[in-house]
Design a binder for these strands. Structure first.
Lengths: 107, 107
DNA sequence: TGAAAATGCAACCATAAGGTTGCATATTTC
DNA sequence: GAAATATGCAACCTTATGGTTGCATTTTCA
């Protein structure tokens, strides 16, 4: 699984908002997700395709509609595998940072 | 604080790698961070400037050198404020997803 | 059946992003 | 003081990204 695709997908505020909307109500169609979004349907559709490619959204066609379902697993994996790495050095890095910034006054 | 700048900064694999290297050894200079990076010094410098703008890296000039220090706080805040939101709907979304995918066999 | 609705496809455009190069500016060091 | 080192600045280039538009396709429903 491509972690990079997930990070790239999360980089855009429109896509993060789409995930938020799916989090609030799962299974929305493209049309529904377009409402309130100040851009063309095609633009929204492209964003959703990127989210699909990153495996953050799964879709299912139902008749002429396409339903979108949130897949929170990749986000959780980022939290576990990547952000977790930064928990340990947090205190140490903060101490370093504080010391360096205090040294700014007397270089 | 601009959450968007942080997401954008994390979107590039080079920048994530730079953060990793600072996590392993904090306070490295630009020159050090350039070693092993297959691109020009200017390219690396630009990436570091972006990380600075996102407040993920703090710098301090020491003589003719520029030292870079990791600031893990924004990453932690993303974990807390943003990724946390996806923990709750995780089980529910997974159940939805499973059900939908199983329905795929008989549409 | 035929119009309306929901989506897909593809070309196109403007801007942003990532990278390079050349030169300028400090700071050591000999 | 002159050469070497470490970095900064700015112009430039290529490609990726985000967006639009027009038209095709599929499904629904009167």
């Amino acid at each position: 699984m491509s972690m990079d695709a997930v990070f790239k997908a999360l980089a855009d505020p429109v896509r993060r908002q789409l995930l938020d909307r799916l989090r609030r109500r799962n299974g929305q169609t493209l049309g529904e997700l377009c409402r309130g979004q100040d851009m063309s349907r095609q633009a929204v559709s492209k964003h959703l395709l990127l989210l699909e490619a990153a495996n953050l959204v799964a879709t299912q066609k139902s008749g002429r509609e396409k339903r979108h379902f949130l897949n929170p697993v990749p986000i959780q994996e980022i939290a576990d595998r990547w952000i977790g790495k930064y928990e340990r050095p947090r205190l140490r890095a903060l101490a370093d940072l504080k010391r360096k910034l205090e040294d700014d006054g007397n270089p």
